[in-house]
């Protein structure tokens, strides 16, 4: 692995102060399960890793009457085994259960999961100077694109790999970000940006900004929530397509809905059009067919990934039926 030094700040402002003006200077280190692999793969070249694990207070899960605050450094295992998360945000536990392996979940953090880079094999290969690395073309457009995006893929076709992001968005999560100007809180939905915004980064963070916590409000959860994903292998595999559905129900009718698709576009995709149909038409078989049909409108499958359209429809229906059951 390329040589680097490690800074050990003791506070969030200390971490911000230790960070450089671009990502080649410094990268924040959380669990390292993605970052160290990137350095080995020669896709990142930081001179200094700013270790967030040396900062106290970022590893806590704080439960209150209104909801829960999850420190960015909480590991995926800690999150999925937390009693209150299991009780009140079950789709999150479901999604984490399928993500990576037990070893990786023991180290990988929720903040790192949201900030992880794409898994496109052209991006991860040092012989392909793709758009994400400042190059001129997206090799996946005409290349091996079996696992790539079917939506929003005109510039870069790498799908966003996070399994927690879609579920957290469906639960209305907010993220707290610290930077040189202090702290701000935004909806997680607005955290990710598309290749049209900036193809070289998947989220809005600058090299000097740290995610410190994720907040979930009880008002936005429901026992009628579910996450379903399709994989090639049963265990230890990336999602090919994920659907998260979070419904507020009153008898058979849907009062409020959140629908988020994942692994099929460069960002997790909230589908307000489908949410509207759920509220207006409910969850009967007619409505489900309508939603399935509508779900793939605007898709642009590449040469090898048209099968993902079938998965989008199937995972959506599955997640809706599972959510209704509660």
């Amino acid at each position: 692995m390329r040589r680097f030094q490690v800074a050990m700040p003791k506070s969030v402002p200390g971490a911000v102060a230790a960070s450089g003006d671009d990502f080649d200077e410094t990268k924040f280190l959380a669990g390292g399960t993605d970052l160290l692999a990137e350095i080995k793969d020669h896709t990142q070249f930081p001179d200094v890793l700013v270790n967030l694990k040396s900062i106290p207070g970022l590893k806590e899960i704080k439960v209150s009457d209104s909801g829960v605050e999850i420190g960015a450094l909480v590991t995926l295992s800690e999150l999925a085994s937390h009693k209150e998360i299991k009780r009140s945000w079950p789709a999150l536990v479901e999604a984490i259960g399928h993500a990576a392996s037990p070893q990786i979940r023991n180290v990988g953090t929720v903040g790192g999961n949201l900030c992880q880079r794409v898994r496109c094999w052209y991006y991860r290969h040092d012989e392909y100077p793709c758009l994400k690395k400042g190059g001129q073309i997206c090799y996946a457009q005409q290349g091996e694109n079996e696992y790539h995006s079917v939506f929003g893929n005109r510039i870069c076709a790498a799908p966003h790999p996070s399994s927690t992001a879609p579920v957290l968005i469906a639960y209305g999560a907010q993220v707290e970000i610290h930077g040189p100007e202090g702290a701000r809180t935004i909806d997680l939905e607005d955290f990710f940006h598309s290749p049209e915004d900036d193809v070289t980064q998947e989220n809005i963070l600058t090299s000097k900004e740290v995610v410190t916590k994720i907040t979930l409000d009880r008002a936005n959860t429901s026992k009628h929530s579910a996450y379903c994903e399709a994989r090639e292998r049963d265990a230890f595999d990336w999602s090919l397509c994920g659907a998260t559905v979070n419904l507020q129900m009153d008898g058979d009718s849907v009062k409020r809905a959140r629908v988020v698709l994942s692994a099929i576009a460069p960002t997790p995709v909230r589908r307000k059009d489908l949410e509207k149909v759920l509220v207006e038409s409910g969850v009967g078989s007619g409505a489900l067919e309508k939603i399935a049909k509508l779900s793939i409108r605007g898709a642009r499958p590449l040469e090898q990934n048209e099968y993902k359209l079938t998965l989008v429809k199937a995972m959506l229906k599955r997640a809706i039926l599972k959510a209704v059951k509660g």
Binding site: V6, G31, T33, L36, N51, Q103
Partner: peptide
């Protein structure tokens, strides 16, 4: 693999299985 994909480098840290290829000894 050195990239988290095979698990053969698994050791226990404080009793929990972790991948020694993806953690720094300095930590």
């Amino acid at each position: 693999c050195e990239l988290g994909e095979c698990g053969t480098c698994t050791v226990l840290v404080d009793g929990k299985p972790m991948l020694s290829c993806l953690v720094l000894a300095a930590e």
